[in-house]
Design a protein around this nucleic acid. Structure first.
Lengths: 210, 210
DNA sequence: AATGAAGTCAAACGGCTGCTTGAGTTCACG
DNA sequence: CGTGAACTCAAGCAGCCGTTTGACTTCATT
């Protein structure tokens, strides 16, 4: 068939690696890094405890790898969602793009949702390998800020940064807290219809008609 | 002196109890319930490990007690802040009252801030004794909703409930995530000036000028 | 002074933790 | 077929976990 050699041994090893990463991601999403147990992961993945040391070196290294994969998946989705925006868009369009990865993950469930929950948990207790992805993270913030400064030229830039962080934090909370379970039962359209006005309103700030 | 009898033994026991509760609250605020260690608490409180079993029965019971105390302090502050609002207030006034307990805790630091952080963590992973305080919690939600339905009669009530939860979640996130450390360094006035427009905007939703 | 309740404490317990070991299996390659 | 690398596995390691125990101190009461 293919010119590539099969090498079933390496394939089996890769399968074990992937299974451990998937099980770790799922458990990280459910309970975070603290309550995580080596034997729990390996039982969930159908692997031996020694496989963790063999493939990743330690439990901590396995968690770091799983978290880094999740962060990279999330940041890529966020960059793509925000990068598609042109200069002159409405706040609603920005809000919809800002929330798209999370809305999609809530609707899709499974590993996408686990990625989102893990990223949200990492946002509360940042790991040590955080710096390596700080650049990508900063880029998503700059993407949002660039659109915001055009849409809201009268608002101080420092305040727009704060509002962006508020909006991101709100999304993180919604996906982590029990309300995320309720939202996951809804359709993507309904979630977006609920969420976009709140996000856009937070970006814009209270109108001065008080 | 006083007609009350001193009974220094009971007073010492009460001091140990309070010290354990204070140390537990501080550690709960820092790292949550999972990473918590019996010996860490007792060393921080200057007590013996057996004191936990003696005074509370178990580590879990100690945590539950500390969490319940924190929840009660938070809910009382929230009820008082929202209860002072009359029927016809602006969204900004509602937002300011909604955020007042958290802004105050950020400015005060210390145990007030620990209470707020612990409550926020509980919001993500609710304990089992949650139901006992569900009534008080529901009351704060109703207080906010009552004002919101007057201020925003054109918005569906179900959406207002969602926006209230979004706003509460945003505050919880701000106090839990690393941004909370930055905010705690600011003055209460500055925090409120940053926060109120975002909260009021989230309550109101995006204006239909898109 | 004797009594006994209240509280403290060092030491130990079984159990679970992450990790290692060495033998065993699988399979590409000469 | 023999060799050796890649991988798996049961068993065991030291160490920390929450909890218990029984002796000890402290002190109001009689």
């Amino acid at each position: 068939m293919a010119t590539e050699k099969a090498d079933l041994r390496r394939e089996a090893g890769q399968r074990t690696r992937d299974g451990l990463l998937a099980a770790t991601l799922e458990l990280l999403a459910q309970r975070g890094q603290e309550g995580l147990t080596l034997r729990e992961i390996t039982e969930s993945a159908g692997a031996n405890v020694a496989a963790v040391s063999y493939h990743f070196g330690s439990l901590k290294a396995l968690c770091d790898t799983a978290i880094e994969h999740a962060l990279e998946r999330y940041l890529d989705a966020q960059i793509e969602a925000l990068g598609s925006l042109s200069g002159g868009v409405t706040l609603e369009e920005l809000a919809a793009a800002f929330a798209r990865p999370m809305v999609g993950a809530l609707a899709a469930g499974g590993q996408d949702l686990a990625v989102m929950r893990t990223v949200a948990r990492v946002g509360i207790d940042p790991p040590q390998g955080w710096d390596r992805l700080a650049g990508k993270f900063e880029r998503t913030r700059q993407d949002a800020l660039r659109v915001l400064t055009v849409a809201l030229p009268e608002v101080d830039e420092q305040e727009l940064v704060f509002r962006t962080r508020c909006a991101a934090g709100m999304l993180n909370w919604l996906v982590l807290a029990p309300i995320g379970v309720e939202l996951a039962a809804e359709s993507a359209e309904r979630i977006e219809r609920l969420l976009v006005p709140v996000l856009a309103g937070a970006f814009q700030g209270a109108p001065s008609l008080g």
